[in-house]
Design a protein around this nucleic acid. Structure first.
Length: 305
DNA sequence: CGAATTTGACCGGCGC
DNA sequence: GCGCCGGTCAAATTCG
């Protein structure tokens, strides 16, 4: 397969319009979608999604995989958790083991109160693309994991430390795209952050690769998949999530967006952060002030730069 | 002063 | 083959 992924124009499209065509239900309901173009169970597992074959088959389909979740403050994307999430309306806490050094303060922050038990259903998917090498030394693309977040701030803390190594203007978009790589010298994970040209309030974050270490902000040991953790970590509390629906290469736009609520707020209680699941009502969002965010909304482990 | 960020240059892939 | 564009590098600059 070819690299069709080079989505020329739309940043988001690049990733989402890749090798797979996405078909998602756009019911406009408060549902979170994650999707998988490859549907590789093993890969999914890498990201912490331990899905049954049956569920995998549904990923990427209109039917999709729905995980009934009674959102609560803590909900991890830990594999087992994911499984339980889908089967029971259960909130789970995750734990990410390992180091956690630097951002010690995270655990000090109090999670927002008001666990919202909305009983909503969140659609879980995930998507990856592993570009194989073609002619010559084609660059191997690591699994990617992207999602959109409605947020006023571009860079949301996800428990890892990132160093910005580049910024590019995005074609047909007034907003630049920033490139970050994990500060861990042994870690090759990168991420891109950009704003949707269509809706400036939407931040598109794309992770590439997998961390070979643990988060610095999610103290507790555990088996949570880091990517998942990161993903989850990105689910900004006050954010409203969107997912892209297959976007034609030419178009720069993510033509379809459905608002969703965070699938589940990951992070273990102690570590990183529980997020408050907000109603998928954008109008309810408060004016964006960092202080407000940090003080009232940002869960432990998640900081906004 | 070291670390992080900025920013223009450069490189490689892809479409035409 | 050429131009466009995404992605990366690295020197300069800023920050803590």
């Amino acid at each position: 397969m070819e690299d069709k992924d080079r989505a020329t124009s739309d940043p988001a499209a690049v990733e989402f319009a890749g090798d797979t065509s996405w078909t998602f239900a756009t019911d406009g309901s408060d549902a979170a979608y994650l999707f998988s173009g490859y549907g590789e169970r093993s890969v999914l597992r890498e990201f912490g999604w331990n899905l049954e074959p049956d569920q995998l088959n549904r990923i990427g389909t209109d039917d999709g995989l729905w995980m009934p979740v009674q959102s609560s403050l803590t909900c991890s994307i830990e594999p087992a958790a994911a499984a339980s999430l889908r089967s029971n309306n259960q909130s789970v806490s995750s734990s990410s083991s390992e180091d956690q050094p630097e951002k010690s303060t995270v655990s000090d922050e109090k999670p927002p109160e008001t666990p919202i038990d909305d009983g909503q259903k969140y659609k879980i998917c995930s998507w990856f693309r592993i570009k194989g090498k073609k002619k010559g030394q084609k660059r191997i693309r690591l699994p990617r994991f992207a999602f959109m977040t409605k947020s006023e701030v571009d860079h949301l803390e996800d428990g890892y430390r990132w160093r910005k190594y580049g910024q590019k203007a995005v074609k047909n978009s007034p907003f630049p795209r920033s490139y970050y790589r994990c500060t861990n010298s042994k870690c090759t994970v990168k991420k891109r952050v950009e704003r949707s040209s269509e809706d400036p309030t939407i931040v598109i974050t794309t992770y590439e690769g997998q961390h070979c270490h643990h988060t610095v902000g999610f103290p507790r040991g555990g088996i949570i998949c880091h990517e998942a953790a990161a993903f989850a970590g990105q689910l900004a509390p006050m954010s409203q999530f969107y997912y892209p629906i297959h976007s034609p290469r030419e178009t720069n736009n993510i033509n379809t967006l459905s608002s969703i609520s965070p699938p589940c707020q990951a992070q273990d209680d102690a570590s990183g952060g529980s997020n408050t699941v907000m109603p998928a009502d954008a109008s309810s969002l408060q004016p964006p002030t960092d202080e407000g965010l940090l003080g009232d909304i940002v869960p432990p482990g998640m900081r906004i730069r």
